[in-house]
Amino acid sequence: MDNVIEVNGLAKVYGNQTALADLDFSVKKGETFGFLGPSGSGKTTTIKILTGQLTPTSGEVKVLGLPFSSLRTSEYRKRIGVITDNSGLYQRLSVYENLKLYCQLYDVPLTRIEEVLKTVNLANEAKKIVSKLSKGMLQRVTLARAFLHEPDLLFLDEPTSALDPVNSMHIHRGLKKLNEKGTTIFLTTHDMSEAESLCDRVAFLHKGNIQIMDEPKQLRRKYSDHTLRVELKNGKEVVLANNSEGAQELYKYMSADQVISVHSNEPTLGDIFVEITGRELI
């Protein structure tokens, strides 16, 4: 099974409002796939359908080789993990007690708790009551919960929204570790830097449609204006074409010891999104 997720002609309509219109995409095994789009673009609707929480209006969905009708079974849920920006942790219980419940539900030995807490840098917080944790720590406990059973497929719905950069970094490190162990990750976000740092491929979702889908690097190259920005010691900045003529000019500046830095003028994923959809990613 090469594709962990296969979606064909997926649509979801609420009354007269179309949330998803004819989506087609697939996610390969071991891939980190980013679903990017502004609020209301259909990201969460897609995750809810793929996790069996929402019935599609039409289209075909296959996750881990299972059709939509099997997405509400214990067998499927044993193999997936879901993380949203809402932790879903028991506030009056300790971190350990929360994770213990999920060890029992997923049939995982309790010794895993110490291991996963070390992974998310919370080894010393096991006895802490959840209501006393900061938002960042809460999200790391949620991540630790997803680590417990090392799912084949992990869904993340805006996992680092409203987190500070340090906590986001902790989450990203954890996700990379999980991905290295073989977990396929399906991530929705409107944070372009998050997508760039984590995703092997991204799809831009706008008004319920995928506008473009590719590797972040390929997208940046495709939408690049093929120029270089050179910062000179005299305080000026020159833009050179990324070709042999530009190289000759750059050589001149470098021979004269004039260059402070050279940057390729590739757009960010955010810039590309704006160019394609005509709107910001908020």
Binding site: T51, Q53, S74, E75, R77, K78, I80, V82, T84, N86, S87, G88, L89, Y90, Q91, Y102, L105, Y106, D107
Partner: peptide, 14 residues
């Protein structure tokens, strides 16, 4: 209210 029921529903618990 605390969204924990959703987490339980998404676990292998039937």
């Amino acid at each position: 209210e605390k969204n924990t029921l959703r987490s339980l529903m998404l676990s292998p618990a039937s």
